[in-house]
C-alpha cells in the first residue's frame, strides 16, 4: 500500500477505521477493552513514511519512523527520549507518528520534538498537505488538530541543535514519565524548553523560553528561568505522582539541563 492509497482509505472510512502502525497504543487499549475496533487502517507497510531524510538543514522524520530508528539519530534529546521508550521490542514497533497521534501528556517523543521546535505535516486526500508547528497541534487532553480524513505524514526538526533530555521514572528502564524535560538551543542561542506530564498536553513554557532567547546562559539566568518554569507549568495530582513534586522537578530539570548546555558549550555545538 502507498501513502496515497492510505489517504484515500482514510478519506473514505474516516473515524470508522482505527489507524494503526506499531500498535503499541492502539492494541493496548484494545486489550484493556477500552476500544473495540473492527476496522483498521494499517500503515505499518508503507515504506515511504518510514524514512528519515535531510533537507535544507532540517531532518524530515517520516511518521512511520520507529523509536529504534530515532534512537540512532545524532539529535541528542530526541535520541535519548526515543531510547527511553519501552524496551527494544516496543521501540521496534512504536513510531513517532503514533506518539504524536496518541498525544499523551507523557509522550516522550512529543516532548523532545516540542523542545526542538518541530513542525508536523498532516495530509489528506482532498486538502493535500499542511505543515503546522507541533505546539499548535496539541489542543487539549488527547485532542489534536488532526482531522478525521488526515494522517500524519512527517515531522521536521532542525538538523543540528544542541539539546538535552531527562526523564524521571520510578525504575531503571521501561518507564512512564513522572516528569520529563527537554531543552534545545540553536546557533542563534534560541532556546526552547518542553515538559511531559505537567498538564493535559505535552507542554512548552513560552515565558521561560522568552527569557532565554538570545541570552548567554549563566547561573543567574538559569535560576530565573527555572523559577519561572515552575509558575508556567500546571501539573496535577494523579496516582503516579503529585503536582507539588512535578512542579518542583520542572525547575530542577530545567536547571540541570540548562547547566549542562552551559557547561558543555565550549566543547562545540555537535550533540555528542
Amino acid at each position: 500500500m502507498t501513502f496515497e492509497q492510505a489517504l484515500e482509505l482514510r478519506s473514505e472510512l474516516g473515524a470508522d477505521a482505527t489507524v494503526i502502525n506499531g500498535g503499541t497504543d492502539v492494541v493496548v487499549a484494545m486489550n484493556h477493552g477500552a476500544i473495540k475496533p473492527t476496522c483498521f487502517l494499517d500503515l505499518s507497510r508503507i515504506k515511504a513514511i518510514r524514512k528519515i531524510d535531510r533537507e535544507n538543514g532540517h531532518l524530515i522524520l517520516g511518521a512511520g519512523a520507529t523509536f529504534a530508528q530515532l534512537g540512532k539519530l545524532h539529535v541528542r534529546a530526541l535520541r535519548e527520549a526515543s531510547l527511553s521508550v519501552g524496551g527494544p521490542a516496543i521501540r521496534n514497533m512504536g513510531t513517532i507518528g503514533g506518539n504524536i497521534a496518541t498525544a499523551s501528556p507523557a509522550g516522550d517523543g512529543c516532548v523532545a520534538l516540542l523542545a526542538l521546535g518541530a513542525d508536523v505535516q498532516l495530509a489528506s486526500k482532498d486538502r493535500g498537505q499542511r505543515w503546522m508547528p507541533l505546539v499548535d497541534y496539541f489542543i487539549d487532553y488527547r485532542k489534536t488538530a488532526l482531522a478525521d480524513d488526515e494522517l500524519i505524514q512527517a515531522v521536521r526538526i532542525p538538523n543540528n541543535p544542541r539539546s538535552r533530555w531527562y526523564k524521571i521514572g520510578k525504575r531503571g528502564a521501561v518507564n512512564i514519565s513522572l516528569v520529563c524535560c527537554a531543552v534545545s538551543q540553536n546557533e542563534d542561542k534560541k532556546t526552547k524548553l518542553a515538559f511531559g506530564c505537567v498538564g493535559p498536553i505535552p507542554k512548552i513554557t513560552p515565558k521561560a523560553s522568552a527569557l532565554l532567547n538570545g541570552e548567554t546562559l549563566s547561573p543567574g539566568l538559569i535560576d530565573d528561568v527555572a523559577n519561572l518554569v515552575a509558575q508556567e507549568v500546571s501539573p496535577i495530582d494523579d496516582q503516579r505522582g503529585s503536582a507539588v513534586y512535578r512542579r518542583a522537578m520542572c525547575s530542577t530539570l530545567t536547571r540541570r539541563l540548562l547547566t549542562q548546555l552551559m557547561e558543555d558549550a565550549p566543547k562545540g555545538d555537535a550533540d555528542a
Binding site: I20, G23, T24, I90, M93
Partner: peptide, 13 residues
Amino acid sequence: GETINSCLMLAAQ
C-alpha cells in the same frame, strides 16, 4: 529478525 511484542501486533499485520 526484529524483536516485537506479539501481544501488541495484530495477526493481520
